[in-house]
């Protein structure tokens, strides 16, 4: 219902004390809201938090057995085992070093390196994703069981072609361009 003034002069300056009282009210209100958001964030962070580590990291630290973690590894194509009737899915991933310049190449090397640590992944009630192919990067959330298998409840995949779009698979035809990933 208040009349709205349009110019600066129409507004009578409020006494200083009144403003600071108002201000205090807003500060307390604002502080409470802010605190509520922070509490939400902290509780959410605690419930959703996962270490994001490599296969090597996971296997090196026994305290991580049974803890929910997120790992990354290179999918070994021939290990993929899938039963579409029960939706049981299992496959093996090889360790991919955390630091690498060319992930496509790192994935390729990991799969073909017999010395790289490997980890068997077990998933239940999982439709086999179309992206689950040899040398794909798998990002898995789950826990390492005492039996040495990783029981994953979520799987995110990135296809090698997403990393090095300019590299066709070698050995298809001699005349084919073999191109470095650099564009």
């Amino acid at each position: 219902m208040a009349e709205i003034g349009w110019t600066k002069t129409a507004e009578a300056p409020k006494p200083h004390r009144a403003i600071s009282g108002e201000r205090l009210k807003y500060l307390i209100g604002g502080g409470a809201l802010l605190a509520a958001v922070v509490v939400l964030m902290v509780s959410g962070t605690l419930s959703g938090m996962r270490y994001f580590i490599t296969v090597d990291d996971l296997l090196a630290d026994e305290s991580l057995v049974g803890q929910s973690v997120r790992i990354t590894g290179a999918v070994i194509g021939e290990s993929i085992n899938y039963n579409p009737e029960t939706l049981d899915l299992s496959f093996t991933v090889a360790n991919v070093p955390a630091e690498n310049d060319d992930l496509g190449m790192a994935l390729h090397l990991a799969v073909n390196n017999a010395d790289a640590q490997r980890l068997e992944i077990v998933m239940e009630n999982e439709v086999k994703p179309d992206l689950l192919v040899n040398e794909a990067q798998a990002i898995l959330t789950g826990t390492l069981g005492a039996d040495g298998k990783f029981y994953a409840d979520s799987l995110l995949l990135k296809c090698p072609s997403r990393f090095s779009e300019m590299v066709p698979e070698a050995g298809e035809s001699a005349a084919e361009p073999v191109i470095e990933g650099e564009a």
Partner: peptide
């Protein structure tokens, strides 16, 4: 450290 979907669905 990454935060899963649970974080977002909770907050």
């Amino acid at each position: 450290i990454t935060l899963g979907v649970e974080y977002f669905t909770r907050v």
